Simulated scan of single mutants.
Amino acid sequence: MKNLNSFRIAIAAASLGLIGAASALAGAQNPVVVELFTSQGCSSCPPANANLVKLSGDPNILALSFAVTYWDYLGWKDIFGREEFTRRQVTYEPALGHSSPFTPQMVINGRTSTVGQDLGEVRGLIAAEKPLAGPAVSLKGDTVSIDGGGKPGSTADIWLVRYDAGLVKVPVARGENAGETLPHAHVVRELTHLGFWNGKPQSLTIPAAKSNQKRALLVQERNGGQILAAVTD
């Protein structure tokens, strides 16, 4: 009887392991999207950068670091900053209840935001998120497929994001963080608008991945609305 019980326990444990693996795989295909808007010229940003580094290791989270440009005048120009990243943050603010952009700011699934300095708070907001309500999206090779389920209330944007696969450390010579070496995870290098999704099945061919970079595709309500679907390679 003891051997039989041990066998049953082993089978149960294996089953739970398979369920957990399946859950992680499903999460990787439809992750919670956490966008950090940050600047190397912002003295308040390093704690949020460090928290994004921790989140970037979770397969159920798509962590993205967008470097903005409006603090460049403080003495250090962010080496990753791009005006289109600043515009993306500015577009988010009205729906999130903010009159102007600020750093650091983590935007979660386009629905809610926080400064991102308290990792426990960030994880609490992530845990409270509902599953993305949009279509199933798959990325195979250089082809993205979007199915016809979860029709949007109106036309949705399709965004291609290219980001660094790992960690980048940047020594800052001037400005508010002078003398510090700041770690960054999943630094976004390019943000490209690919077109629109109107609820019908759609396939897109996207550029091949670059060395040491990954690609992500976001289907998102227009004008900085909620993210409906996400996938990364």
Rank of each mutant, 00 (worst) to 15 (best):
130 K>G: 10
82 R>E: 14
140 K>A: 15
119 L>K: 01
138 S>Q: 10
77 K>H: 10
94 P>V: 07
120 G>L: 06
98 H>I: 05
131 P>T: 04
83 E>Q: 12
123 R>P: 07
135 P>F: 02
133 A>L: 09
92 Y>P: 09
136 A>H: 14
130 K>A: 15
133 A>P: 01
87 R>P: 06
104 P>Y: 00
100 S>Y: 09
108 I>N: 03
87 R>T: 13
122 V>N: 08
124 G>R: 00
110 G>L: 05
105 Q>L: 13
87 R>Q: 14
81 G>L: 12
108 I>Y: 00
83 E>M: 11
110 G>V: 13
114 T>M: 13
108 I>Q: 01
97 G>A: 07
92 Y>N: 12
78 D>Q: 08
98 H>Q: 15
102 F>D: 10
103 T>R: 06
79 I>R: 14
125 L>M: 12
123 R>W: 10
115 V>P: 07
77 K>V: 05
123 R>C: 03
125 L>H: 01
98 H>T: 07
139 L>D: 13
124 G>W: 00
87 R>Y: 11
131 P>G: 05
138 S>W: 04
108 I>C: 06
120 G>T: 10
140 K>E: 15
79 I>K: 05
115 V>M: 03
129 E>F: 05
105 Q>E: 12
98 H>N: 15
83 E>A: 10
131 P>F: 02
97 G>Y: 05
116 G>A: 04
140 K>N: 15
95 A>Y: 04
131 P>W: 10
95 A>F: 00
90 V>E: 09
96 L>G: 09
126 I>H: 09
83 E>Y: 13
89 Q>Y: 02
84 E>P: 05
88 R>L: 12
97 G>K: 12
79 I>G: 00
102 F>C: 06
111 R>Q: 11
82 R>T: 02
89 Q>E: 11
113 S>W: 04
107 V>K: 00
118 D>A: 01
96 L>D: 07
108 I>A: 04
80 F>R: 11
124 G>C: 01
91 T>A: 15
86 T>G: 06
95 A>C: 02
83 E>V: 11
115 V>N: 05
129 E>I: 00
124 G>D: 13
79 I>L: 06
91 T>R: 15
133 A>R: 09
114 T>W: 14
92 Y>G: 03
94 P>I: 08
124 G>P: 04
123 R>D: 07
131 P>V: 04
138 S>H: 07
93 E>S: 12
115 V>A: 14
101 P>E: 01
107 V>S: 01
99 S>P: 03
91 T>Q: 15
92 Y>D: 14
118 D>H: 09
105 Q>A: 04
96 L>A: 10
126 I>F: 04
84 E>Q: 12
117 Q>V: 04
99 S>R: 10
110 G>R: 11
109 N>T: 01
119 L>Y: 05
133 A>S: 13
109 N>R: 00
105 Q>W: 02
81 G>P: 10
81 G>E: 11
106 M>F: 09
79 I>F: 00
79 I>M: 13
93 E>L: 10
85 F>I: 09
118 D>T: 01
84 E>V: 11
92 Y>R: 14
122 V>W: 08
100 S>N: 08
133 A>V: 03
86 T>C: 05
116 G>E: 04
116 G>R: 01
81 G>K: 11
